[in-house]
Design a protein around this nucleic acid. Sequence first.
DNA 1: ATATATGCAAACGCTTTGCATAGAG
DNA 2: CTCTATGCAAAGCGTTTGCATATAT
Lengths: 130, 130
Amino acid sequence: MARTPIVSTALLSLMRERHHHAWTLEDLQAGLAGRDVAADFSSVFRAAEKLAAAGDIRKLTLEDGRARFELRDAHHDHLHCLRCDELIPVPCVIDQAASAAFEAESGSRVAEHSLVLTGTCATCQDNNAS
Amino acid sequence: MARTPIVSTALLSLMRERHHHAWTLEDLQAGLAGRDVAADFSSVFRAAEKLAAAGDIRKLTLEDGRARFELRDAHHDHLHCLRCDELIPVPCVIDQAASAAFEAESGSRVAEHSLVLTGTCATCQDNNAS
DNA sequence: ATATATGCAAACGCTTTGCATAGAG
DNA sequence: CTCTATGCAAAGCGTTTGCATATAT
């Protein structure tokens, strides 16, 4: 190596402290700024891509077309709250047996899946009630 | 009304004849061209948006960031084949019970879901074998 | 006349890349 | 000296919009 990758390192520690959040590049840049790391957008982009390629984080694309990044830990799906626009991790509700059956029947092979539930998160649901 | 919407009509009949396909705007434009309807890209875009708003078709966004349109019929999920890049409809493999349980436990409400399986479709799987 | 559909071209939003600079080994 | 990280600015790419024109009612 020939120089210390400040941005990548800062990104990882930032995300590790709030790993319940799916970050847009803008979020990440703002998050770094809050920690006095003034990184250029392209640097954030490149660092995030590199981390994703390395498998440390995962890249997602929402219906709104913007990329989101999150720490890669145990698999989970997502709930996209239409009220607060957060992308919230939720336990996987895929029926493994059904998935396997589908593979067997159809002759296709499923490597991964991306499930996004759309609705209202618990917090917004509560706020609405009160 | 003040003029006959050629593009919307042509789009619908086009899609009805190959409703097993998820169309990008480019696909749609090319499909129309094959039927001697030379529509501008923006016209295709507007017609597709209008049809989607009217509920005749559905708009999806893939990881690649491009919008796809498909006829709205019975709910199904999708298999995105990484080899041929097709977006293939597959029966829904969501475990309804698990989904309902999740709603109850978490206090959130799920209106819809979008599930994209990623892997290899049966056709490509076969081609690979042979 | 009025309202809508269409084409053309330009604006947009987000992502991605080229190039020059800087700093660690 | 070499190799990578970073910033800056510009290019890309698909989507979206403004405006003028055409056409059916």
